[in-house]
């Protein structure tokens, strides 16, 4: 029994031979609809903030530095490549590219920053909600947003009109702590 098993095992190993690819010299085929690194198109983005609202990793941040200027920051170091942002974007401004070899030393290399001129938009979320009708996909954070980009912290306090004090407060943002 022992010997026949061993012979069978030998055949099992011989038949397929070597299957390991000699990566990186040999590359496996990348499927067409791979969910790789998301790429943002600033021409298409309307700055609705929907992607930021629905990113499970909360790695898309939104900061209104004044009435007209909205800064959006995508921090690739925390991205899970789920593709939720691309699904949710009403303008198809996000594509899940097929680039996946994105390990790097500098966080900045995989960070995307967009500065969007917002015209007179009051950030009511209406433009987003006209496209997205699923009740559980609505925008939760409407109005002006003040995420802390340095600390990469999403701040859940928003205001209906631009509020310089909130902007300033967000600069001092600190994680709650019981350490003295």
């Amino acid at each position: 029994m022992w010997l026949t098993s061993k012979i069978k095992q030998l055949l099992m190993v011989m038949k397929p031979g070597v299957v390991t690819l000699n990566y990186p010299h040999e590359r496996p085929p990348v499927p067409a609809n791979l969910r790789g690194q998301p790429v943002f198109d600033h021409q298409k983005c309307i700055g609705c903030g929907g992607c930021s609202d629905h990113c499970p990793a909360r790695c898309i941040l939104v900061r209104d530095v004044c009435q007209e200027l909205r800064v959006m920051l995508y921090d690739g170091s925390r991205c899970t490549y789920c593709g939720r942002c691309a699904d949710i974007c009403p303008e198809q401004a996000i594509t899940m590219s097929n680039s996946f070899e994105i390990a790097c030393d500098q966080k900045e290399d995989i960070t995307t920053r967009m500065e969007l001129f917002m015209m007179t938009c009051q950030r009511c979320g209406r433009c987003y909600e006209m496209e997205k009708t699923n009740a559980i996909d609505r925008i939760n954070l409407k109005g002006f947003r003040y995420d802390n980009l340095e600390q990469r912290a999403l701040i859940r306090k928003t205001s209906e009109t631009f509020d310089p004090t909130l902007l300033q407060q967000s600069d001092q943002y600190q994680r709650p702590s019981t350490k003295e």
Binding site: H54, P56, R58, I136, D137
Partner: peptide, 14 residues
């Protein structure tokens, strides 16, 4: 505390 219903499946998956 942080995310909405339709994001939980993605975290649940992890």
């Amino acid at each position: 505390t942080q995310i909405s219903y339709n994001e939980v499946p993605f975290i649940a998956e992890r």
